[in-house]
Structures are given as C-alpha cells and as structure tokens.
Amino acid sequence: MLEQYKTIYEGGIGEIVEKKSRFLAEVRLVKSEEEALRFIEEKKKQHWDATHNCFAYVIGERRELVRCSDDGEPQGTAGRPMLDVLLGEELYNTAVVVTRYFGGTLLGTGGLVRAYSKAVQAGLAASRVITKYHGILTEIGIDYTGVGKLQYLFAQNQIPVMDSQYAENVKMQVLLPAKDAEQIKKAVTEATNARASITDVKELYFAVSEGEYLLFDD
C-alpha cells in the first residue's frame, strides 16, 4: 500500500471562457479504466452537440494507466496539457473531460494549451481533493488509572480517538498512521507500564478534510 496519495473525494465542474469558446471541465474519481471509459462516454452523450470532448485520466497505485485524447483538436493541444495538470498535481485515480463549445475565434496552438490547462485547474478547484494516508485502526484496552496518560499521549501526537467504551476497563479505538504505528504502540506500552492491551483492528486509508476524518477500505 502507498503511504499516502492525492485523489478526488467529490468531483466538480469548472468552466472558463476564452474568446467566446466555452470550456467545461468535469472531474471524477475513477478506480478502473472501465469506470473512466464509462465516464467519458457519458460526457460525450451528454454533450453530443459540443465541438470537442477531450479527456485525460490517471489510474493505478503506480499510475500505470495514463491516457489522454485531443478529440479532434490539433495534436498535443488538449489531452496532453490536461494530463500534465493531473500529473503535476500528483493525483491518482482521477479522470477529467473538457468539453469545448467553439465560439467562432481560433485560439492557436498556445491558446488551446493554455485554455485546456486552465479548464482542468478550474475543474479541480471545484472538486474536493484529499490526501489519503495509510493507517491502522487499533484498539487499546486499559484500566481507568491509565486513561489520562493515554489521552495525553494521543493528544500530544495528534492521534484521533475514533471510539471509546467505558465498562470494567476502557477500550479506545485510535487511528494510527502506519509509518508511526510501532513507535506509538511502544509509547503506549511505556506510558502504562505494559498494562495496556494493543490489538490491530484493520488496515485502511484515512483522510482529513474540512475538519472531518474520512475512512476508506481502499
């Protein structure tokens, strides 16, 4: 699993106008090439009367699937600049379709490159982009005398407590960044004189967006 990567949580639509040509950029999360192709076909059907429906997408843990299309624009003036924006933003599992409605004025090669790049940037600005981190949801069991020490430890290390159960003992589910997990577990053991039980519940990805913790199975 990647330790972290940027992707789309909620896609968006951005629009720019260049010399009366409208460029509509729609961004979407895609986890397979089949999803990307369905998205592109959907946009082509929706904007059947457009001059061009250009696209770019980046898919895979190593971004091994990278495709783009100029859809009739001069070669290299649309799809590649769109793809360059996605790659430059280091996005994973992301597709974008830019629909152009021609306004009657030719933009030239440089103008097209700038317009398609700006359109994708507008689409990304309208989207909710997140960074996913590899994490481990871990359950910590402790007697009541050790709760305060653990709460202090977690606060100092910015470890969120996702759930707490108070019974004969206390059980807390905490979200540990995978890269720091062993270090935090060692600190828990030391802080409680080895009285705490530590059980990994599952590996996952998490993100923090708008002050909210988001959990993902992939």
Rank of each mutant, 00 (worst) to 15 (best):
E3S: 13
T7N: 03
Y9I: 06
G11R: 01
G12E: 13
E15N: 13
V17P: 04
S21A: 08
R22L: 13
L24K: 10
A25F: 04
V27E: 05
V30R: 01
S32R: 08
E33I: 06
E34P: 03
L37P: 09
R38E: 11
F39N: 03
I40F: 08
E41P: 02
E42S: 13
K43H: 08
K44N: 01
K45M: 14
H47K: 00
W48C: 15
W48R: 15
D49Y: 10
A50C: 11
T51K: 08
A56G: 09
Y57T: 02
R62M: 12
V66C: 13
R67Y: 01
C68H: 10
C68F: 10
C68R: 10
E73C: 03
E73H: 05
Q75Y: 11
T77V: 08
G79E: 07
R80L: 14
P81R: 03
M82I: 01
M82D: 07
D84G: 04
E89I: 00
N93P: 06
T94E: 06
T94G: 00
T94K: 08
V98F: 00
T99I: 12
R100W: 14
L107A: 05
G110W: 07
L112R: 06
V113T: 10
R114F: 06
Y116S: 05
Y116A: 06
K118Y: 09
A119L: 00
Q121R: 13
A122M: 08
L124K: 02
V129D: 07
V129G: 05
T131R: 05
T131D: 09
T131Q: 06
Y133G: 09
Y133K: 08
G135K: 01
L137W: 08
T138E: 06
T145M: 11
G146L: 00
G148V: 04
L150I: 04
Q151D: 14
Q151L: 07
Y152W: 12
F154Y: 05
N157T: 03
Q158F: 05
I159E: 02
D163H: 15
S164K: 14
A167D: 12
N169E: 14
V170A: 12
K171Q: 11
K171M: 06
K171D: 01
Q173S: 11
L175Y: 03
L176I: 09
A178T: 01
K179Q: 14
D180E: 15
A181P: 00
Q183P: 02
Q183K: 14
I184D: 02
I184A: 04
I184Y: 01
K185M: 13
K186F: 03
V188E: 06
N193W: 09
R195T: 14
R195E: 13
D200C: 00
E203N: 11
Y205L: 10
Y205W: 06
F206P: 10
V208K: 08
V208L: 11
E212Q: 15
L214P: 07
D218I: 12
